[in-house]
């Protein structure tokens, strides 16, 4: 091996080491803000056309589209400015998270109002609004929220202006307020592995379920359609186990997360191919994206994997 190459490799491992340390210590606000922006764009596109399928028959259906644009902008802003990350990004992410909850309510209600309502759960989940989609949409908001509490990559010392949400803590009963402050503190220091693991587990379950019924709709025509359905519960199980057990977090979690992410990539490829193979293919591309296999859905599944991966790199809270 030439000197140069080994030098490069050393530099590579060095970089990786740096990244890992940044994450361990909660110093990855910039990158997470950027990631927030990117996921927000993807989920914004998805919700834009999904709601177009639903014809924007309520004005509230515009909110996730608008918010995901705002969140993307806020994410980019957070990448460039610490101030923005702590203010705009935090608030936009928070509102988006609330909106996801509101969306969940409307989707549940939408299914209820379809003929047969919840008495025909499978049919109406398939043909009505996708129940869990709004919660999955909340993933990017969650990332944004976390990002807003982190330290910047370049920061060396613990932050001087911590506890900026102190007004909120003042509103809460003192015990809860203290809990909140210490949670914030932990996040800032990258000690929130359990939390991310829980979110990863939940999001794996939800997107696994979405994959199940939308592939069920297609009669599981391809064997590969079972893969997200099979991987999701494992990812969820490992994630939940990781909250209890440090070893799981360090070993199984990164592995299964990587598998999920890889599966998502494969899924993305097949979905894109499926879109092109529809009648009219490229000529009616926009229509086929709308009604073909949802091309971004696998990426949301991948997001669960990504969260798992993130969790495995973080530190645990010390209580």
């Amino acid at each position: 091996m030439s000197k140069e190459a080994s030098g490069l490799e050393a530099a590579g491992t060095h970089d990786l080491e740096v990244v890992r340390n940044h994450i361990r210590e909660g110093r990855f606000q910039r990158s997470l803000s950027l990631l927030t922006a990117v996921t927000s764009i993807v989920s914004g596109l998805e919700v834009a056309y999904e709601h177009y399928r639903g014809s924007y028959s309520r004005r509230v259906m515009y909110t996730p589209v608008i918010l995901s644009v705002l969140l993307a902008v806020a994410g980019f802003a957070g990448f460039f400015s610490k101030r923005a990350a702590r203010t705009v990004l935090r608030w936009v992410a928070f509102v988006t998270l609330v909106d996801a909850g509101v969306g969940f309510y409307f989707h549940v209600r939408g299914i209820y109002r379809k003929p047969g309502g919840w008495r025909l759960p499978m049919t109406n989940m398939i043909m009505g609004p996708p129940v869990f989609a709004p919660l999955l949409f909340g993933t990017s908001a969650y990332l944004g929220l976390i990002a807003s509490y982190l330290q910047r990559e370049e920061s060396l010392h613990a932050d001087p202006d911590a506890n900026e949400d102190s007004w909120l803590t003042r509103l809460l009963p003192s015990a809860a307020g203290r809990e909140l402050i210490s949670e914030e503190q932990d996040i800032r220091e990258g000690k929130f592995q359990q939390q991310v693991a829980i979110v990863a587990g939940v999001s794996a379950l939800l997107s696994g379920f979405e994959a199940y019924y939308s592939h069920y709709k297609n009669n599981f025509r391809y064997k590969a359609q079972w893969s997200p359905v099979a991987i999701a519960p494992i990812l969820a199980g490992v994630s939940f186990a990781s909250t209890k057990n440090r070893r799981w977090a360090a070993t199984a979690l990164p592995v299964i997360s990587a598998v999920a992410a890889a599966d998502a990539a494969v899924g993305f490829y097949y979905h894109a191919r499926g879109v092109l193979r529809r009648p009219g293919g490229r000529k009616h591309l926009l229509y086929n994206i709308m009604y073909g296999p949802p091309i971004f859905a696998p990426l949301l599944f991948g997001a669960a994997g990504m969260l798992g991966g993130l969790a495995s790199l973080l530190r645990r809270r010390n209580r």
């Binding site: 399928r53 014809s55 309520r58 109002r113 379809k114 003929p115």
Partner: peptide, 11 residues
């Protein structure tokens, strides 16, 4: 193609 007040969408 989407619900409309008290009218559900096509099944």
């Amino acid at each position: 193609s989407g619900s409309h007040g008290d009218r559900p969408h096509c099944i």
